[in-house]
């Protein structure tokens, strides 16, 4: 029988492996098609490269058809991949309304990096719903969180491709995430197709410069 005595603490073995000394929970949210998965891939791969335990949960399937997407990335977690409400350290919001939608996951004083470029859902374009004012949303979030807002889509466009908005956001977020800047760059080199590498490396640097910690 697979019967083993519990360890001295009486809590038993911890699943999976990797360093768990630093814990840092990141929510990446936005709209299906904005590249939230690549952003979480860069983050996760960087964590693995630095030997940290990592768990992530992603939105695939139906929700990707322009729906709201929510990815959780837990650096230093040996357990589950879902971030309990009120405890995330950082949010990377690729779209402002989505920042508000998932704010409940954030801990008080947590950092919200938000791309201010709106993506209107069809409920808004067809006049069934209103899109809230940008300044209202940012001011409200600022009451509780450390909000870092800038137009990452414009920054990406200036570096050559709007599609690189996600990488601009990772660049900005790298100020806060407890991983080395060089590790992110190494991971971008692996994950991005060669023909888009220069644009993405430039996007990362531009994102880094877009906010000051």
């Amino acid at each position: 029988m697979s019967l083993i005595p519990m360890d001295k603490d009486g809590f038993g073995a911890v699943p999976n492996s990797g360093k768990t000394d630093v814990k840092y929970d990141v929510v990446i949210c936005g709209v299906g098609g904005q590249g939230a998965i690549l952003a979480s891939d860069i983050l996760g791969r960087a964590a693995v490269a630095e030997g940290r335990a990592i768990q992530a949960a992603e939105t695939h399937g139906m929700a990707q058809r322009g729906g709201s997407v929510e990815n959780h990335v837990r650096i230093g977690s040996a357990y589950g991949s879902l971030i309990p409400p009120g405890s995330a350290d950082l949010m990377i919001a690729l779209e402002p309304v989505e920042a508000v939608r998932y704010a409940r996951l954030m801990k008080e004083g947590g950092v919200i990096i938000v791309n201010t470029e709106p993506v209107y859902p069809f409920t808004v374009t067809t006049g069934k719903a209103e899109y809230p004012g940008l300044s209202q949303m940012l001011e409200a979030l600022s009451k509780v969180f450390d909000v870092q807002a800038f137009n990452a889509t414009d920054v990406a466009a200036q570096t050559g491709n709007r599609q690189a908005t996600n990488v601009v956001m990772i660049g900005a977020a790298s100020h806060y995430i407890p991983l080395q800047k060089q590790t992110f760059i190494d991971c971008i080199r692996v994950l991005v197709p060669p023909e888009f590498l220069d644009i993405n490396l430039a996007a990362f640097e531009a994102g880094l410069k877009s906010i000051r910690k």
């Binding site: 729906g67 508000v100 009451k143």
Partner: peptide
Amino acid sequence: PPKPLPPEITDIVLPPRPPA
């Protein structure tokens, strides 16, 4: 349970964003 978000945030009516 975590402290609830302030009304400034929860009062914002968010447009639904279902897949389409």
